[in-house]
Design a protein around this nucleic acid. Structure first.
Length: 253
DNA sequence: AACCGGCTCAACCGCACAGTT
DNA sequence: TAACTGTGCGGTTGAGCCGGT
């Protein structure tokens, strides 16, 4: 059995939004808050699909949007985060206040990609074009680090997140390594801070756990980092490998 | 002024996934 | 457990803008 459509296709407006539609949507969300997108169009008197309303609000009408050109700092941060996360635009957007995933995705495709290609860097792998390691995600092969620094994550900014670091350090985990780690590689900065997308931060949202692990090997300097994030009912686990300073996204936990 | 091609970005689409029944 | 619902994500599209000819 096929999936039912997200909304009634007939009598539904498509394309550019009018000022009146924007005003209706804003007024409804001010009065009732975000959420309930499926029923929102009818309640707000809009002939729009719920998904379309959500997108319009998140990408254009939200009052906390920054708009305007990206700064040099934002440029660099996007490139660094993309090297860590790949095309996870919503996660990247979560670290750029006032920016949306759609905006960053567009900016990446129209500006940064071209800029990187003109510098001879593969925008997908963040490695020089023609690099024999391009497309290779095997952490057992030692690769040179990219020519820019991997961003150091900030320390936990809330007591709650700090608690999770503390909690998970002492808790055994499927990917918890044996033995101590910081002592072996004191220069490795693996403090992780997960910033939640501002548009999806209801009260219940929180970092459900951050598992900080380092599987240190004196010869390969490889380490593993696992993250589990839960916000707004959305839970995601990620697993990164680092090899001699090179974070390569290697797959889901 | 008209045409054309490239670029931008708002919006759409299909899908995945967690939650609910 | 399966079916269904609601939401969010990433890829893609296309209307509109702009500069060049």
């Amino acid at each position: 059995m096929g999936r039912s459509p997200c909304c009634e296709k007939v009598n539904t407006n498509k394309g550019a939004w009018t000022k009146e539609e924007d005003d209706r949507l804003i007024a409804h969300i001010r009065a009732h808050g975000e959420g309930g997108w499926r029923s929102l169009p009818k309640a707000a008197g809009l002939l729009r699909c719920g998904k379309s309303c959500r997108l319009r609000w998140i990408n254009y009408l939200r009052p906390d949007l920054k708009r305007g050109n990206f700064s040099q700092e934002e440029d660099e941060l996007i490139i660094k985060l993309h090297s860590l996360l790949g095309n996870k635009w919503s996660l990247i957007a979560g670290r750029l206040p006032g920016r949306t995933d759609n905006e960053i995705k567009n900016y990446w495709n129209t500006h940064i990609k071209r800029k990187m290609l003109s510098k001879g860097v593969d925008p997908q792998t963040h490695r020089p074009l023609g690099d024999p390691y391009n497309g290779c995600n095997n952490a057992s092969i030692s690769r040179p680090a990219p020519d820019y620094e991997i961003p150091a994550f900030e320390n936990p900014r809330t007591p709650e997140i700090a608690d999770f670091f503390q909690y998970n350090r002492s808790e055994s985990s499927p990917i918890e390594p044996a033995g101590s780690k910081d002592e072996e590689h004191p220069d490795l900065n693996l403090d992780l801070c997960i910033s939640l997308p501002s548009h999806s931060t209801p009260a219940a949202s929180r970092v459900s756990s951050v598992v900080r692990t380092v599987d240190s090997n004196p010869n390969s300097l490889a380490c593993n980092i696992g993250l589990r994030v839960n916000y707004g009912g959305y839970c995601e686990s990620r697993y990164f490998e680092q090899n001699v300073g090179d974070f390569s996204h290697s797959g889901l936990v």
